[in-house]
């Protein structure tokens, strides 16, 4: 099979997986909608937290309430989309524990594709919905004037963010090959990235900003492009920064491969 043929075939298979996931979820409609509501409520409390803080304080590190809302909602969109697609990696410990990864290894397809397909989490629409609502509210509150550059920046941020968080989920899953115990720590980067990403990263000080640029490049999908979105900068290069997440993802994938190799040599 040639290159495009193979990609098409993989895409076709992935869509097949997704449709089975959706149909499975629809078998329990009540549960499905309750979970969506739950997701919506969860992020509502985060929003309320920001609201309460800004009732007391009117500005933080130079950012206004609406700036923070834009930042928060974009990060939430990135995260919920990544979670929707890459949930299979987020729940990978269960898969290893139940021995289901063995099943994946005895099938003639890439492991990543199969794990991605095993779980397409449609309930994350709840979170996504909340993020979109806050975003719209933020856009009006900040009176964002839409230019081609800003639209491009937003798209680029979303794409880069999905890649970045997916990479983190991939690393999380790769750790499952080594230990099923110490995984909690990865939450700092996944859930933490979402929770603390609600404020632009320079709020946390210079050192954190450096960490979030060179170790795990959150700033590439959040702080830098955000400057364009909230009208602090016109530098179009910032709009391309989120694509740096691709490099990060490649590194995460290398680690995943390393994990798979460890798994097949330790057999547990």
């Amino acid at each position: 099979m040639n290159g495009t043929g193979r990609v098409k075939d993989m895409l076709h298979l992935y869509v097949h997986y997704v449709s089975l996931n959706v149909r499975s979820a629809m078998q329990h409609k009540a549960s499905f909608f309750l979970q969506i509501t739950g997701q919506l409520l969860t992020s509502c409390t985060t929003f309320l937290g920001i609201y309460f803080m800004f009732l007391r304080f009117h500005i933080v590190a130079g950012y206004t309430y609406s700036d923070v809302l834009l930042c928060f909602s974009v990060v939430l969109m990135q995260f919920s989309l990544a979670e929707m697609f890459a949930r299979g990696f987020d729940t990978f410990s269960g898969m290893v524990r139940r021995g289901e990864f063995d099943r994946i290894l005895v099938r003639p397809r890439g492991e990543v594709l199969q794990v991605l397909g095993s779980k397409f989490e449609l309930t994350r629409i709840g979170r996504l919905l909340q993020a979109v609502i806050v975003f719209v509210y933020g856009v009006f509150a900040a009176r964002v004037h839409w230019t081609a550059l800003r639209v491009l920046t937003l798209v680029s941020m979303l794409l880069g963010g999905i890649l970045l968080f997916s990479g983190l989920f991939l690393v999380y899953a790769a750790f499952c090959f080594f230990t099923l115990e110490g995984l909690e720590f990865m939450n700092v980067f996944t859930d933490g990235g979402r929770e603390y990403g609600k404020y632009p990263i320079d709020v946390y000080g210079k050192r954190m900003q450096q960490f979030a640029t060179f170790i795990i490049p959150y700033t590439l999908v959040q702080y830098y492009p955000l400057q364009i979105l909230i009208g602090r900068s016109d530098n179009w290069v910032y709009a391309l920064y989120p694509m740096g997440a691709l490099v990060f993802l490649a590194a995460c994938y290398a680690f995943w491969r390393f994990g798979v190799r460890h798994y097949t040599s330790s057999g547990s």
Binding site: L13, H16, L20, S24, R98, G99, R103, R109, Q114
Partner: peptide, 22 residues
Amino acid sequence: RSQLWWDIPVIDSFELLRDIYA
């Protein structure tokens, strides 16, 4: 351990396998 999808008709799992094994 099952390789069939729990909530949907068996034939759907078979069709997925058809695609997996091409």
